[in-house]
């Protein structure tokens, strides 16, 4: 059971880190997407949403090539003295940030759009600076959307499988996350251990969604 615990801990660590990073990366993108009238809104929105529709195999395949020693990302990493990303925890973080991005950006963007421009105009008339308006008016109003975003980002990272399988190399404690561990148990016919982890995942996912749907009245994410 020890290796299962390692996998659970690794997964929690990965999902937590990715969620925090995504809130920092996703919020400005969502803010820009909800306010801009630029022609770039369409293309940027589409790129952010891409991971939602692409098969994980496409993402895994391109990440493997991009982050490899012949790929631009891999070469850039090497030129600044960093180690390459495939088969590492850092690699999984990068891949997961990209993979879960739409699940974080969309609820926040919807929350920003739902509040309209009225509260900000009122704040502006009271001489609040743009930064002040964002941090003291917009962000607090968008809190339910941000909570939804955090929950979805976390849960989606926990549920990630195909990309990790393709770039992870299945290293215990580094890249062997829960979903891959379950796959291993099933493939090697260790159904009992598989049941423990898989059953746990069903309970976890149900609780997450229960939390989300119970609090949904207050939030404005659809």
């Amino acid at each position: 059971m020890h290796s299962s615990l390692t996998a659970i801990w690794l997964t929690v660590k990965l999902a937590t880190l990715v969620t925090v990073l995504l809130l920092f990366i996703g919020t400005p993108i969502a803010w820009w997407l909800s306010r801009t009238r630029s022609w770039l809104k369409g293309p940027v929105g589409a790129v952010v949403t891409l991971p939602l529709v692409l098969p994980p195999t496409v993402i895994g395949f391109y990440l493997l090539l991009l982050m490899g020693p012949h790929g631009p990302v891999g070469q850039a990493m090497e030129s600044v003295g960093l180690s390459r990303l495939p088969f590492s925890f850092a690699g999984l973080v990068v891949a997961s940030v990209f993979y879960s991005l739409p699940f974080v950006v969309q609820p926040i963007q919807n929350a920003f759009e739902a509040m309209g421009s009225r509260p900000l105009e009122v704040a502006a008339s009271l001489r609040a600076s743009p930064w002040d308006r964002f941090f003291t008016v917009a962000l607090p109003l968008a809190r339910p959307g941000m909570l939804t975003a955090a929950i979805l980002g976390f849960a989606h990272t926990v549920g990630e499988f195909g990309v990790v399988l393709m770039i992870g190399g299945n290293i215990p404690g580094k890249t062997q996350v829960l979903s891959v561990k379950i796959f291993d148990y099933v493939e090697t016919m260790q159904y009992e251990q598989a049941h423990w982890l898989a059953g746990g995942m069903v309970c976890f996912s149900f609780l997450v969604l229960l939390l989300l749907y119970s609090g949904r009245k207050k939030s404005a994410w659809v």
Binding site: L64, G68, H70, R84, P86, F87, M166
Partner: peptide, 12 residues
Amino acid sequence: SQAHQFVSTGNA
């Protein structure tokens, strides 16, 4: 196949 793919892409 995947073991081979890791090597052929240069990642290993």
